[in-house]
């Protein structure tokens, strides 16, 4: 009996902590974090001892999970690039497999980011899509990730496929820091700079956000390990099938 590697052993714990952190973040986001102020209204009203003269935005609560999910997609792509480089250095198929799985995880979180972001865009800006710098670079990132899988299915030779995919995976990752930094490079009134000492996030907002971020990172890690375990199992099955075929062939030769 093979003992499983340590990341597989800690995976259930990581998933449980991830679920706990995200649940706590969800509860804090809705029960503790105050509603963010939007456009000003004509006069002031006192609510809970605080003078309020702005519209209160419930839609901003999407932020607590939309941003962490996007960050997990960047982190997954960093692993794609890391394993792609390792594959190019060593030519070991396991690194190609790991890069592919990391890209799959990135795609899942990109879809989640796009879907949640689109609903936020629709409500706050009144449109389903706008060619704003952050949205455009993230859309390009999604297209690159989809292209990565198209490239993989288009090439049959395993080593050639892995090499091309590794190079493309590294290129795909290059867009992640661009997308992350674009709000600083091309300032937009629509997408604010979140990670800054001047972002003005109060602890009541920052704590649930960080809990959601670490929770989602753990969920992403767990998904990666589960998928890797499944792929490893499938590979073992293929090996056993090959062994079986060889045994049958030998047996037929002996009987013949």
């Amino acid at each position: 009996m093979r003992s499983s590697p340590w990341p597989d052993r800690i995976m259930p714990l990581a998933l449980a902590i991830g679920a706990l952190l995200t649940t706590t973040a969800f509860l804090l986001a809705f029960l503790v974090a105050p509603l963010v102020a939007g456009a000003t209204v004509g006069s002031t009203e006192v609510i809970g001892g605080i003078a309020v003269s702005n519209k209160l935005l419930l839609s901003q609560k999407i932020f607590f999970f939309h941003v962490p999910v996007a960050i997990v997609s960047f982190a997954a792509l960093a692993f794609t690039a890391f394993y792609s480089i390792r594959y190019l250095m060593t030519k070991e198929p396991q690194f190609d497999t790991r890069a592919r799985i990391a890209t799959e995880i990135a795609l899942v979180f990109i879809i989640a980011t796009m879907a949640s972001g689109d609903l936020w865009t629709r409500f706050d800006w009144g449109v389903w899509w706008v060619w704003e710098p952050r949205l455009t670079t993230y859309f390009i990132l999604m297209l690159l990730v989809i292209a990565y899988f198209i490239l993989r299915t288009a090439i049959d030779a395993p080593e050639r496929k892995a090499t091309f995919a590794a190079v493309f995976g590294i290129i795909t990752f290059v867009d992640a820091p661009i997308c992350f930094m674009i709000t600083r490079l091309v300032p937009s009134s629509i997408h604010p700079v979140v990670f800054s000492t001047e972002s003005g996030m109060s602890p009541l907002v920052l704590v649930p956000f960080l809990l959601a971020l670490f929770g989602m990172l753990l969920v992403g890690f767990s998904l990666y390990r589960v998928r890797l375990r499944q792929v490893t199992l499938t590979d073992r099955i293929e090996q056993v099938k090959q062994q079986l075929e060889e045994t049958w062939q030998n047996r037929n030769l002996m009987e013949g």
Binding site: L58, F65, H66, A115, F123, L223
Partner: peptide, 30 residues
């Protein structure tokens, strides 16, 4: 004034719920 302050809260609810559902749906399907 209060009505105006809270005017976007109820209309935003379906979008908020939709966003959270879609995030977890993507993860759950995977």
């Amino acid at each position: 004034v209060l009505a105006e302050i809270y005017s976007t809260v109820l209309p935003a609810a379906p979008f908020l719920i939709g966003a959270y559902v879609l995030i977890w749906l993507a993860v759950l399907i995977f």
